[in-house]
Lab assay of single mutants.
Amino acid sequence: AVSDRLIGRKSVVMEAISPQNSGLVKVDGETWRATSGTVLDVGEEVSVKAIEGVKLVVEKLE
C-alpha cells in the first residue's frame, strides 16, 4: 500500500503534537495528521512509526 512506504520515513512537525491532540507533519512534501505519545514542537524531526486509519503515529528522532 502507498501508506506502507511512509513507515520509517523522516518527517518534520508542522503543527505541534501532544498525547491529547493530534498535529500535522510533512512527509515527502505531503502533509499528514499525526499523533504521538509525547509532546512534539513545530520544526522537530520525527520518524513515522505506524499508521492508524488516516493518521500517522510518529516519535522524535534520537
Rank of each mutant, 00 (worst) to 15 (best):
E44S: 07
W32A: 01
R33I: 15
A16L: 09
L56K: 01
N21F: 11
G8P: 03
R33N: 08
V13S: 00
T31V: 14
T31S: 07
G29E: 08
L61D: 08
T35M: 10
I51E: 02
V2E: 10
V27M: 09
A1I: 11
E52D: 14
V2P: 15
L40K: 01
D4F: 10
E62K: 11
V39M: 11
E44W: 08
V2L: 14
E45D: 07
G53Q: 03
V57S: 05
G23V: 01
L24P: 01
V54T: 14
G37Y: 13
L24I: 10
W32N: 01
E59D: 08
R9E: 07
T31I: 15
T38S: 14
K26T: 10
K49Q: 08
L6S: 02
V27G: 01
V48F: 00
E52A: 09
M14N: 03
Q20L: 11
E45F: 13
I17H: 02
E45V: 15
T31Y: 14
K10M: 11
V42D: 02
S11C: 15
V39C: 14
E15R: 08
S3G: 11
E62S: 13
L24T: 10
R33G: 10
P19I: 05
G37D: 15
M14A: 07
N21Q: 14
E62G: 12
G29T: 05
S36Q: 01
I51W: 06
E15S: 11
K26E: 11
L6H: 04
L61E: 08
V2C: 14
V2N: 13
R33Y: 10
V2T: 11
E15Q: 13
V58I: 03
V58Y: 00
R9K: 13
V2D: 13
E15I: 11
E59A: 10
I7R: 04
I7F: 05
K26P: 01
Q20F: 12
G53H: 04
P19G: 06
W32Y: 15
V58F: 00
G53P: 03
D28V: 04
V54G: 15
L40G: 01
A1E: 12
V42N: 03
G29Y: 05
A1L: 12
L6Q: 03
D4L: 12
S11G: 15
E52Q: 11
I17E: 00
N21R: 15
I17T: 04
I17M: 04
N21E: 10
T35V: 14
I7Q: 03
I51G: 02
A50W: 07
L24A: 09
V25Y: 00
T31W: 10
D41M: 13
V2A: 13
L61K: 07
L24F: 10
E62M: 12
E45I: 15
E44C: 09
K55N: 14
V46F: 00
D4H: 15
S47F: 15
G53W: 02
T38I: 09
G8A: 02
V39R: 11
S22R: 02
K10E: 09
D4K: 12
I17F: 02
V54Y: 14
G53F: 03
L40N: 02
L6P: 01
A50L: 06
G8F: 03
G43I: 01
A16Q: 11
G43R: 02
S22W: 10
V48D: 01
V54H: 14
D41N: 13
